[in-house]
Each structure stands twice: as structure tokens, then as C-alpha cells.
Amino acid sequence: AEEIWQQSVIGDYLARFKNDRVKALKAMEMTWNNMEKKEKLMWIKKAAED
């Protein structure tokens, strides 16, 4: 689920960090860890469908 979420937001994060992939990935990891369980559930369901 986290991978699907990352694939959907990586472009936004890379743009925000001027294509600094290391910073973008760290920010994504922090965002994922801070997400509410119900927000993650949507992505977990999406992962299950694929």
C-alpha cells in the first residue's frame, strides 16, 4: 500500500524538492508515518484490488 501511495505522490514530492530524490523520499516516509489509519486504509484497499 505504501508503494502505491508513493508512486502516486512521488512527482509532487520531487517537484517540491527540486528533484532531490533523497529529501523527497525522506519527506514521503515521514508523511506516510504521520498519516491517519483511515487515510492509509484507502491505499491498502487500492493495493488489494491490484
Rank of each mutant, 00 (worst) to 15 (best):
R21D: 05
Y13D: 00
E39S: 03
K45E: 14
S8D: 09
D12N: 08
K46T: 06
M28P: 00
A1D: 03
L41Y: 07
N33V: 07
N33R: 09
E3W: 14
N19R: 04
Q7H: 09
A27Q: 06
A27T: 05
A27N: 06
K26C: 08
N19C: 12
L41P: 02
E36W: 04
A1F: 04
I4L: 15
I4E: 04
A47G: 04
M30Y: 11
V22Q: 13
L14Q: 02
D50G: 13
A1C: 05
W43L: 03
E36F: 03
W32G: 00
L25H: 09
N19T: 03
A1N: 03
A15T: 12
I4R: 09
D20Y: 02
F17N: 06
Q6K: 10
K18Q: 14
A48W: 12
W5D: 00
L14R: 01
K18W: 09
I4S: 06
E49V: 09
W43V: 03
M35T: 01
Q6W: 06
L25P: 00
A24F: 02
N34T: 10
S8G: 04
I44W: 06
E49M: 12
M42L: 13
D50C: 14
E39L: 05
W43R: 02
K46E: 09
M30L: 12
N34P: 00
A48F: 13
A1E: 03
E39M: 05
S8I: 08
L41G: 06
A27I: 05
I4A: 10
E39H: 05
N33C: 08
E29W: 07
M35K: 01
V9T: 03
A24I: 05
D50A: 15
A27S: 05
K38T: 13
Y13G: 00
A24C: 03
E49K: 12
K46A: 10
M28H: 01
W5F: 07
E29M: 07
E29P: 00
V9Q: 04
D20K: 02
K38V: 09
S8W: 11
A15S: 11
I10H: 03
M30F: 13
R16K: 11
V22I: 14
E49D: 10
K23G: 09
K45A: 14
A48M: 14
M30Q: 14
N33H: 10
A24E: 01
W5G: 00
W43A: 04
I44G: 07
N34F: 05
E2Y: 14
A24R: 01
W32S: 00
D20V: 03
K18M: 14
K45Q: 13
E29S: 08
A15W: 08
F17R: 01
K37N: 12
E36C: 06
L25I: 10
L25T: 10
R21K: 12
G11R: 12
F17M: 06
L14S: 02
N19M: 12
K23H: 07
A15M: 11
W5A: 00
L41T: 05
L14N: 02
L14C: 09
E36M: 03
K46M: 14
R16L: 13
G11D: 14
W32Y: 01
M42T: 09
I4P: 02
A15V: 12
K45D: 13
Q6V: 09
K26H: 13
A15C: 10
K37W: 15
E49Y: 09
N19P: 06
F17A: 06
W5E: 01
D20R: 01
K18S: 13
A15E: 14
K26M: 12
T31G: 09
S8T: 10
G11H: 13
E36V: 04
A47T: 04
R16M: 14
A24V: 05
A27L: 05
E39D: 11
K46C: 11
L25V: 09
A15K: 12
L14G: 00
N33F: 08
R16Y: 08
A24W: 02
E39P: 01
E39Y: 05
N19V: 02
T31F: 14
M35L: 04
V22A: 11
A15Q: 11
S8M: 08
L14D: 02
K23I: 08
M35G: 01
A47I: 06
W43Y: 04
L14I: 05
A24T: 04
S8N: 06
K18V: 07
E36K: 07
D50N: 15
D20E: 05
T31S: 08
A27V: 07
Q6Y: 07
K46V: 07
M28N: 01
E39R: 03
W5R: 01
W5K: 00
G11N: 12
K23S: 11
W32M: 00
E49H: 11
F17I: 02
A15R: 12
K26L: 12
W32C: 01
A1L: 03
K23A: 15
V9P: 01
Q7Y: 05
K38F: 11
G11W: 11
A47Y: 10
L14Y: 03
E39N: 04
V22W: 08
M28T: 01
K45L: 11
M35H: 00
D20H: 04
G11T: 13
N19Q: 11
L25K: 08
Y13N: 01
W43M: 02
I44R: 04
K26V: 09
Q6E: 06
N33S: 11
E49A: 11
M28R: 00
W5I: 00
N19K: 05
M35S: 01
D20P: 00
E39F: 04
A15G: 10
A47Q: 05
N33D: 10
T31I: 10
S8L: 08
D20A: 02
R21C: 14
K37T: 15
M30I: 12
L14A: 01
V9I: 04
R16P: 01
K40C: 03
N34W: 04
M42P: 08
W5M: 00
K45Y: 06
Q7W: 08
V9N: 05
E36T: 14
G11Q: 13
T31D: 15
K37D: 15
D50K: 14
D12E: 15
K37L: 15
N34H: 07
A15N: 08
R16A: 11
E39C: 06
Q7C: 12
N33Y: 07
A27M: 08
W43H: 03
W43D: 03
A15I: 13
K38A: 13
K23E: 12
L14P: 00
I10G: 02
R16T: 06
L41A: 12
A15P: 05
D50P: 05
K26N: 10
R21L: 13
R21P: 08
S8E: 07
L41Q: 08
K37Q: 15
K23Y: 04
A15Y: 09
N34V: 05
E29T: 07
A1Q: 03
K38C: 14
W5Y: 04
K23D: 06
I4Y: 15
V22Y: 09
K38N: 14
I44V: 09
N33T: 09
T31K: 07
A47M: 05
Q6F: 09
V22L: 12
N34S: 10
N19H: 08
K40G: 01
I10A: 05
E36H: 06
E2V: 11
A48Y: 11
